[in-house]
Simulated scan of single mutants.
Amino acid sequence: MSHKTQLHALTAAVAAAASTCAWALEPQSIRLGDSLNFSPSLQVTESYDDNIRAVETGELSSWVTRISPAFALGADGHKASYQVQYRADSDTFHSSHLDDNTDHHLTAKTAFNFNVRNHLTFDIGYHRVELLDSENSDHQSQNDKYNTIDAGALYSFGAPRARGQIDFGVRHQRLRYENTQHINDDLEREFTQANTIFYYRLAPRTRALIEARYTDFNYVSNDLRNSSEIALLGGLAWEATAKTTGAIKIGSQKKHFEESSVGNMSGSMWEIGIDWKPRTYSTVSLTTRQAIDENYQSGIGASAVESTLVKLGWKHGWTNRLSSETSYSYIKRKYQDYDRDDRFDIATLDLTYELRRWLDVSLGLKYIQKDSTRARESYERSIVGLTVAASL
């Protein structure tokens, strides 16, 4: 039974907890032609995780070796740009080699600037991921194994300094699991989203905005979760005004289920991201979000989840070579039609030293505490890791 499949951005910090250090390098490119560049890089992390399965009792600790090769292939033209990126994350669990796995991430993006008023971008990605799952006393546990195909397009009309601008976006995602014994089959789905954002310039660097979104969820075998959503948001977006950059969106969200036996949902929604730079070498960031999300928990009757995220971060350059990044995240998840509330507290600290232009060494610390109203769903987890990142 799956216990920790978290695909949404709200819980990405938990799903990626085994990685303690950030990817910091900007690789130098190899020119393969007049406009074609190739950028390889490599990251190696050795970490100690005292609870690799994120369980309340019977914790298993392990040293974990992660090797992450990556490359980017890009081309820039007069009115168009193209980029393909690939990254593999190979994890070796020295106390549990049956859990060794390799994740694959392949993405491509192209952008067209037809003229000063018309811009179009396309992107597509394929991700094949395996997440360690908690033990279950009733039957043999399986790790969550899934793949996603995600594609989107965005058309923007309006000159950069025009009074008004408008964006039209569309996105489609397909999620499929690779577990045996039909585990996680009830989570397989596709969603399609369309949105429109209208911007109105209030000042040279400040714009008011109104956004409308429509999302359709279609599950392969779990018809009770088929639904559609409508969200209306308004707010502000600004750039480098009084040392801050950010966007604020506040509004409401409504979720309608196809099955009449499942109650519809509605509530307030917000998405806020603000960066404050008191110094050129120091940045304080605030990110917060509240929304109705899909339930990514297999085998339970929750129709959806009310999610709240608050994250506070601080990046600081102590010297030309030494920098730090700290953060604290609070995540709350309230399950609908199911008696369960979860809370996550996540604290991180990363120190990075630039040995050479092409070589960084980082020390990362991460602490995760989950409190749940359901039995056997709470846990604590600490991870410490040393990362070497290299490029050309």
Rank of each mutant, 00 (worst) to 15 (best):
S95Q: 02
L209A: 12
W318Q: 01
F217P: 03
S95D: 04
T241M: 07
R279P: 07
E56I: 11
I383Q: 02
V388H: 01
D342P: 00
T280Y: 10
M269E: 13
S266T: 06
D103E: 13
A151H: 05
P160M: 03
A24K: 11
Y126I: 09
S391H: 07
H8C: 14
F93A: 00
G164W: 13
L351Q: 02
A162C: 05
Q83I: 10
V284N: 07
L73C: 03
W314M: 04
R189S: 11
S260D: 14
R189Y: 09
S323V: 03
Y126L: 08
I346T: 02
I124M: 10
D339P: 04
L42R: 00
V262Y: 05
S261F: 04
T352L: 02
P160G: 03
A347H: 03
G33S: 07
R225V: 00
D167K: 04
L309W: 02
L232V: 09
L286T: 11
Y379R: 09
V361E: 00
N113F: 07
D103R: 13
H316C: 06
D345T: 07
I124H: 05
D337C: 01
K79S: 14
E59M: 10
I300R: 11
S323M: 06
Q253M: 05
E59F: 08
E306N: 13
Y379G: 09
H104M: 06
T102D: 03
I292Y: 01
A302S: 10
N118F: 10
Y177K: 14
V305M: 01
E271V: 07
I300L: 14
Q140C: 05
L312H: 01
Q369R: 13
S324A: 07
K4W: 13
P278D: 09
E294C: 12
L131G: 08
H182G: 12
L73W: 02
V116W: 12
L363E: 09
N295V: 02
A18I: 15
H119M: 06
I183D: 11
R87D: 02
S268P: 08
V14R: 09
I149H: 06
T244F: 04
A389L: 02
L309C: 06
D293S: 13
Y353P: 01
L349I: 10
V116E: 15
R66S: 11
T57R: 15
S2K: 13
R128M: 13
T92E: 12
A162D: 10
A75K: 01
T287E: 14
R213F: 08
Y335E: 04
H104W: 02
Y338G: 05
K277E: 11
R343Q: 11
Q181I: 11
A108R: 01
L32Y: 03
K254E: 11
Y199F: 14
R128D: 15
S221V: 14
L363T: 06
G267D: 00
R207D: 04
R376V: 12
A153I: 07
N136A: 10
E258D: 14
D100Y: 07
R213N: 08
W314Q: 05
K4T: 09
G317Q: 04
D350H: 08
A375H: 12
